Amino acid sequence: MNALNRVDLKQLRTLQCLLREGNLSRVADQLGVTQQAVSDQLKKLRATFNDRLFIRSGNGVTPTAYARTLGPKLDLILNAVGELLEQDEFNPATTTRTITISSTDLEQKTILPFLMQRLRREAPGLRLAVKKLELDEMANDLLDGTVDLVLTNPKFAPPSYPSLTLYSERYVCVAGKANEAVRSTMSVAEIADMPQVVVSPSRGDFTGAVHRWFEDQGHPRQAMLSVPTFTAAKATISETDLVGFIPSRLLPDDSLQPIELNAEIPGFDVIAVWHQRSSQDPLNIWIRDLLVQVSR
């Protein structure tokens, strides 16, 4: 380790050029430095390797026997460093990487099929893994690389993580087609008194997305069932007297009837979230751009 501390890349590059050119002036021109700077580097190299390295000969310098043995090693080292600093050019058509996305069934229904269509055309070797959204594990999953991207509501996203808005959504109040207790137009107070289903991904609580809205209207709602997916909510609403709020992109549904309320129902944004280390990853950037395109 001490030996490594005595040498830097500039010195190794100078040594490589001297072995090739055999002339301090030409090396100085090649490296864009003064001839004195090359002489100074050579002095340090001699001390590091404990060898003269080069002997003056005519208008140039001749490498010692020991210096000649360093040539092939220098080429390998400096080529390897060059490759290390070069970023591989990302090509969707040839990549064989895997990307993992976590989302609710809303995004799995409305975004992922169209994303996969594009991937099959433009990146046929790319594999896509989709995981159920775990709200309480979101930050850790992104941190440890278990998940590359999360599609979610901004209120669930870790505030310090970068994000991108994909689209804006609105809720529609719905009831089962056979539910005779509802009308096509109702008041917030009337809906609040009806039994409701709440969608709560991974937590199983009874607040849901419009809970605060009902309270602000002065009409706390009657949440009787909490389910983790909109698919389950729709199925339950269609077969019971429960009502609920479903994103508009999951409608219309032949088994459900929409109910217009006398107040505007709050909407929400769907965003993509990632960890900071993936901000410059070409694949992650490309997928984020595709998500924006297919979400329009």
Results as ranks from 00 to 15, higher is better:
residue 177 K to G: 12
residue 178 A to T: 13
residue 178 A to E: 13
residue 179 N to T: 09
residue 179 N to S: 10
residue 181 A to C: 12
residue 181 A to Y: 13
residue 182 V to G: 04
residue 182 V to C: 11
residue 182 V to P: 02
residue 182 V to F: 07
residue 183 R to W: 11
residue 184 S to R: 14
residue 184 S to F: 13
residue 184 S to W: 13
residue 186 M to A: 06
residue 186 M to Y: 04
residue 187 S to Q: 10
residue 187 S to D: 05
residue 188 V to W: 07
residue 188 V to T: 11
residue 188 V to R: 01
residue 188 V to P: 02
residue 189 A to N: 11
residue 189 A to H: 11
residue 189 A to P: 03
residue 189 A to M: 08
residue 189 A to T: 06
residue 190 E to F: 04
residue 190 E to W: 06
residue 191 I to W: 05
residue 191 I to M: 12
residue 191 I to S: 00
residue 192 A to V: 04
residue 192 A to P: 06
residue 193 D to H: 12
residue 193 D to V: 01
residue 195 P to Y: 09
residue 197 V to D: 11
residue 197 V to L: 05
residue 198 V to C: 00
residue 199 V to A: 09
residue 199 V to D: 10
residue 200 S to G: 07
residue 200 S to H: 04
residue 201 P to N: 00
residue 202 S to G: 08
residue 202 S to M: 05
residue 202 S to K: 05
residue 203 R to C: 04
residue 203 R to E: 11
residue 204 G to L: 02
residue 204 G to H: 02
residue 204 G to Y: 06
residue 205 D to A: 08
residue 205 D to S: 09
residue 205 D to C: 07
residue 205 D to V: 08
residue 206 F to G: 00
residue 207 T to A: 14
residue 207 T to R: 15
residue 208 G to S: 07
residue 209 A to L: 13
residue 209 A to H: 14
residue 210 V to P: 03
residue 210 V to H: 01
residue 210 V to A: 00
residue 210 V to C: 05
residue 210 V to K: 02
residue 211 H to T: 05
residue 212 R to N: 10
residue 212 R to I: 10
residue 213 W to M: 09
residue 213 W to S: 10
residue 213 W to I: 11
residue 213 W to N: 09
residue 214 F to L: 00
residue 214 F to T: 03
residue 215 E to H: 10
residue 215 E to P: 02
residue 215 E to D: 12
residue 215 E to Y: 08
residue 215 E to I: 13
residue 215 E to R: 08
residue 217 Q to I: 01
residue 217 Q to M: 15
residue 218 G to H: 05
residue 218 G to Q: 07
residue 218 G to S: 00
residue 218 G to T: 03
residue 219 H to C: 03
residue 219 H to E: 00
residue 220 P to H: 10
residue 221 R to I: 03
residue 221 R to L: 12
residue 221 R to Q: 13
residue 221 R to D: 10
residue 222 Q to G: 07
residue 222 Q to A: 12
residue 223 A to C: 10
residue 224 M to C: 14
residue 224 M to Y: 11
residue 225 L to I: 14
residue 225 L to S: 08
residue 226 S to P: 00
residue 226 S to T: 00
residue 227 V to E: 05
residue 227 V to M: 02
residue 228 P to M: 07
residue 229 T to V: 03
residue 229 T to H: 04
residue 229 T to N: 05
residue 229 T to E: 03
residue 230 F to W: 11
residue 230 F to H: 15
residue 231 T to M: 06
residue 231 T to L: 11
residue 232 A to K: 10
residue 232 A to F: 03
residue 233 A to F: 08
residue 234 K to C: 12
residue 234 K to I: 08
residue 234 K to W: 07
